[in-house]
Each structure stands twice: as structure tokens, then as C-alpha cells.
Amino acid sequence: MPKEITLCSPLDMHLHLRDGDMMKLVTPLTAETFSGAVIMPNLVPPVDSLELLLAYKKRILSSLGGHQFDPYMMLFFRGDYTEAELAAAKEYMLGIKLYPAGATTNSEAGVKAIDAVEPVFKMMEEMGIPLMVHGETHGFVMDREKEFLASYDYLAQKFPKLQITMEHITTADAVALLDEHENLRATVTLQHLIITLDDVAGGMLDPHLFCKPIAKRPEDREALLQAALEGHPRLMFGSDSAPHPVEKKECCGCAAGVFTAPLAIARLAQLFDKHDKLDNLQAFISDNAQRLYGVEPAEKLVTVANVPFEVPTAYTGHDQHVVPMHAGETLDWNVTSIKA
């Protein structure tokens, strides 16, 4: 009999669904196996008002393909939010996402100076609204996250009741900082638990592994992996699954993003099993997020077993063509049952 594990209500705490035809293709690929996900607001234009948030959520719900799924919405951080705006939006969102201007896809409208928007942080702290952050500077690409850690340290100390999520951490230094402040938590992606920069550019360039923050050194991957495997209580799975049309990936000026949504649960099970830590996967993929954010997803029981899974070379539909991580490879684990 194959080894198996049943996960209760998996959550993806960092997900890109895009919009339009791409959203129609990729949304069911997450909604099938996850109970809910935190939806990134960096559309064009950004989702920076309650009106835009509610309209986007409506479009997501219409794209679920019949699956049971809760989209946890976020606003795109603006430095001029009023208390009235935040109060009106609070019940409809999980938090607010801060992007440094120009740091990643569709972030040109982001924040240029952290200290210039502190009044909004203060309002969020007083109102109990979590802050999620894409934590990179514009320095040398391998040092951008490390350089931003000083900003996390500053914010965590100045606003001790503000719950701050360090999104998609990639370094050993970020793991260490997580233990220094009780109001810090973090998400980590599938790819950053598996690859290093060598996998992206050490031989022939692999555009489908190129993402931001960029993959780092082996010692960084090891620190992230150990924190996840040991069930760090303030570390959560956030796929940062970021679909781009194949022509935007296999080109000069390759778009940043790794598409992992359809295989994330199977690949995580394979990874945790390899290290004899399957018992800690439930905390990483759901329990920690439920406790930290106070969310109560609908029950969805997802059974994953030690049986082969041939990853498609691409996912197509709605005039879209997206290549996933591990395209054309055979994984050792697969989702075998879903009960919602």
C-alpha cells in the first residue's frame, strides 16, 4: 500500500490569480485542492479601494469552476488611506499588501519611502489590520531581501501591535529575524524550499524558475527548509504561484514568476516525506495560517499518496498557455482524493 496523508483545509497564503482569461484558467487549478488563498492585489490598475476589491472578488468567485474556495482579499497599500476607508474595507479584507515601488510585477504604484507612510501603519495597528510586505530594496539582486530586513526590524519595534508578514522569504537572515519579534510572521514558497540560484542560471538559463525574490544560496534554502520541516509556528506556506503566458517567459526580458499551483500540494508532500516530516505538513500548509490570521476555512480533506504524478508540459485554456514548475517530470506523490 502506498504511503498517504490527508490534509485538512490547505491554505495558500500568497497567490496570484491575475485577471481576465488567465484568471479563468488558473483559478480552478488552486480552488480544486486548496480551501482558500490570499489573493495578491497587484493588478493593473492595482486593487487599492473597496470598490475594486469587491469587484475583483466577484470575478474570482465566478471563475472557481464549481470548487469550494475562499479568496482572502487584500488591498494594495496606498500612503493616503483615510481611517474611514480602512474601517469600511476591514471586514472584506485579510490585510494590506505593501510593495516597494517597482520591486516586482505591476508594483510601480508602490511605496517609495517607508517613513513617509507611517500614519497608515499607525492606523492599521490601532484597527488590527495586518500588513503584508514584499520585502526587497533596489540594491544588488542577491542582497535585496537582506537589505530590507532593517525595515522589518524598524517596523516591528515601532509598531509592536502591528502584525507584519514577511512575504516569500528567501534567506537564512530572514528566518533568524522571524524569531526576534513576536509580531513578525512569514510565508515561504515551494520553489525556495527546493531550488537555489544555480538551478535558475547555473547552466542553461531556466526562465520557468526565474522569480522575485530570486532564489539564493544553498545555505539559505537549507535554513528555509529546516524552519518549514520543523513546523515553525509563524511560518506559513505561500506559493507565490505566478502565472505568465509562455511567450512572456520564454523570451528576452523574461517575466518573473514560477507557476506551481497545480502541483504544490503533491510536491510539498514529496519534500516533507523525503525528510520524514510528513506530520508537520498540516501545520505548514494550514494550521499556522488559521491561528495567525484567525481564518476558519471550510473543511476540505485532501489526501496525497506516494503514487506517480506526471506534471503536464503546460496548462492551456481560454487562449492561455502556462508552463508549470517540473513541467514534463514525474513526481513521487499525487493528490488521490478530495472531499469538500
Results as ranks from 00 to 15, higher is better:
His16Ser: 14
Asp19Val: 03
Lys24Thr: 01
Thr27Cys: 11
Pro28Phe: 15
Leu29Ala: 07
Glu32Val: 02
Ser35Cys: 06
Pro41Val: 00
Asn42Gly: 09
Val47Thr: 07
Leu53Val: 02
Leu54Tyr: 00
Leu61Tyr: 01
Ser62Trp: 05
Tyr72Lys: 15
Met74Pro: 01
Arg78Phe: 00
Gly79Glu: 09
Thr82Trp: 13
Thr82Phe: 11
Ala84Ile: 05
Ala84Ser: 06
Glu85Ser: 01
Ala88Gln: 10
Glu91Leu: 05
Pro100Gly: 09
Ala101Val: 10
Ala103Asn: 05
Thr105Val: 11
Ala113Glu: 14
Ala116Gly: 11
Val117Ala: 07
Val117His: 09
Pro119Ala: 08
Met124Asn: 06
Gly128Leu: 03
Glu136Gly: 07
His138Leu: 03
Lys146Ala: 11
Glu147Pro: 00
Ala150Met: 00
Ala150Gly: 03
Tyr152Gln: 08
Tyr154Thr: 14
Leu155Met: 15
Ala156Phe: 08
Ala156Leu: 12
Phe159Gln: 07
Gln163His: 14
Ala174Asn: 10
Glu180Asn: 11
Leu184Cys: 09
Ala186Phe: 08
Ile195Ala: 01
Leu197Trp: 12
Pro213His: 04
Lys216Val: 04
Asp220Ala: 00
Asp220Pro: 02
Gln226Tyr: 02
Gln226Gly: 00
Ala227Gln: 04
Ser241Leu: 12
Pro243Tyr: 12
Lys249Ile: 13
Cys252Thr: 14
Cys254Glu: 12
Cys254Ser: 15
Ala256Asp: 15
Leu263Gly: 02
Ala269His: 07
Gln270Tyr: 10
Lys277Asn: 13
Asn280Ser: 09
Gln282Thr: 13
Leu292Trp: 01
Tyr293Met: 15
Ala314Gln: 11
Gln320Glu: 14
His321Gln: 13
Val323Trp: 12
Val323Arg: 14
Pro324Asn: 04
Ala327Glu: 15
Thr330Arg: 09
Asp332Ala: 15
